[in-house]
Design a protein around this nucleic acid. Structure first.
Length: 293
DNA sequence: AGCCAGGCAAGTG
DNA sequence: CACTTGCATGGC
């Protein structure tokens, strides 16, 4: 594996916070020799059969990678954007966001691979995060390839063709529940070319949102999550039950029954390229302050 | 033992 | 467009 490090402060990137807040299901804690979560401070993800391992020590971000995956670090963590600048640009608008910004240091948005991101959020309706992880891991283990490197075995989430072999019944056996038909039908729709993932990257946010919703099981919220975490549309403002409660309580004048109009209110307020970050900080702050709502 | 969880599609008014 | 209903499953 290729090894090296990047210089980056904890204020600019806190790996553990960024990977553990629940925005991604594609990163795992590294363990001695197994597939899933271990206990150390190292993390890994896989992409197209390659492995990227990351860990932080002081102001260094160390990596081990196969297939040149270290070249994707900047893209996957948006390291070319200064987190300090983004947070300063969001500061001073209101008390609740200021508190949220102060509560998490080094929390960044992630850019995951599109397909695993899509499937993970297809599995997310009416589910808690630990169970989404289990469902996601179950699919990876059943339909994905295993990558053997340096005596360890890593899981590669299946691609569209591999997952197209899964029947609804097979997926229900993995505990996916009624979301199994979302996965089966969406995979078929992509295979048939109803939605071409590569095109989503070239569309603007609004167009991509309409396009991705053609997929069965992708509604407004899942669309925004996949666009934000898997396509890199920073304009997305996912509104789930938590955000909705928070909006009604802290931003009542910005509430709207129409999903995209509500989002527009916050895109105007936080700025189109910062609203995704604002959502990230608000979501995790509010969720950890459950008793306040 | 019920209630509920990062919502969604389908149906109705 | 706004609102209602059914939905799989495991944890509490």
């Amino acid at each position: 594996m290729d090894e090296g490090y990047l210089n980056i402060s904890r204020d600019e990137l806190d790996l553990e916070t960024t990977l553990e807040v629940g925005q991604t299901f594609s990163w795992y804690r590294l363990s001695e020799g197994t597939l899933y979560d271990g206990e150390g401070n190292k993390y890994f993800t896989t992409s197209n059969g390659n492995v990227l391992i990351l860990w932080q020590e002081d102001d260094k971000l160390f990596y081990k990678a196969t297939g040149g995956m270290e070249e994707q670090i900047e893209k996957r963590f948006y390291l070319n954007d200064s987190l300090r600048d983004i947070k300063e640009g969001l500061r001073g608008k209101d008390e609740i966001l200021d508190k949220a910004l102060d509560s998490y240091k080094g929390l960044r948005l992630l850019k995951d691979d599109f397909f695993p991101c899509l499937i993970s959020y297809l599995c997310s309706p009416q589910m808690r995060i630990p169970r989404i992880k289990k469902m996601f891991n179950g699919i990876a283990e059943r339909y994905g390839d295993k990558i053997n490197v340096d005596g360890r075995t890593f899981l590669q989430f299946p691609n569209v063709e591999q997952l197209s072999k899964a029947s609804e019944e097979d997926l229900r056996d993995l505990g996916i529940g009624y979301r199994a038909k979302y996965v089966v039908r969406t995979v078929k729709q992509i295979l048939d070319g109803l939605v071409v993932p590569e095109k989503l990257f070239k569309m603007d946010y609004r167009e991509a949102h309409g396009e991705i919703k053609k997929l069965f099981g992708v509604g407004n919220k899942v669309a925004d999550c996949v666009l934000l975490f898997g396509v890199g549309k920073l304009e997305a403002f996912p509104v789930d039950t938590w955000i909705k409660k928070a909006v009604k309580k802290y931003y009542p004048e910005k509430y709207d029954k129409n999903y995209l109009r509500l989002g527009d209110n916050f895109r105007d307020y936080f700025g189109e390229k910062k609203v995704g970050y604002a959502q990230e900080y608000l979501f995790h702050y509010i969720r950890n302050q459950e008793s306040n709502l």
